[in-house]
């Protein structure tokens, strides 16, 4: 039952999202005689970004907002955080937030890992334990 509803709803949702984003895409195309080509647009054209990739980056922002809320960020902060990202950063966050290194994660406290890291610390390859300096 649930599956059926999903199957029915998904295309509708996709269509709604795509349609909803179209005006944004259209707005970024300046009408002749009125708006100049923006620096961002010119740069994306210079870097060989296709129109399709540009739509993708615009969609990416909504995606990142959802992901940040899921990661426990205060919803009141999310919009301002996403607004401060560049297009490229938003796309990067949307595509690979899980793989991005996050400063200050914790090491899995396995004993074997402890031993290896102790050795590599002493060898001067790592810097996990403060006492090995």
């Amino acid at each position: 039952m649930m599956k059926k509803i999903c199957r029915f709803l998904s295309p509708l949702l996709i269509a709604a999202l795509v349609l909803g984003s179209l005006p944004v895409v259209a707005a970024s195309q300046p009408t002749p005689g009125a708006t100049l080509i923006s620096t961002e647009e010119a740069l994306s054209a210079e870097s060989g970004q296709t129109h399709r990739e540009r739509i993708h980056t615009i969609l990416a922002r909504e995606d990142v907002q959802e992901q940040l809320v899921a990661q426990g960020v205060d919803p009141a902060e999310v919009e301002a955080r996403v607004a401060a990202l560049s297009d490229a950063e938003a796309a990067q966050m949307a595509d690979q937030l899980e793989e991005l290194p996050a400063g200050a994660s914790v090491v899995g406290a396995l004993f074997a890992v402890f031993v290896i890291l102790l050795v590599t610390d002493i060898l001067g390859l790592t810097n996990v334990f403060p006492f090995t300096r």
Binding site: L68, A70, Q71, G72, V73, R81, A84, L85, S86, E89, A90, Q92, M93, L97, L100, P101, A102, G103, A104, S105, V106
Partner: peptide
């Protein structure tokens, strides 16, 4: 800061 990652990612460092 990303609470569930217990860290901060590079793009957001720049954004901040």
């Amino acid at each position: 800061f990303l609470p569930s990652r217990e860290g901060s990612v590079q793009p957001e460092m720049l954004a901040t």
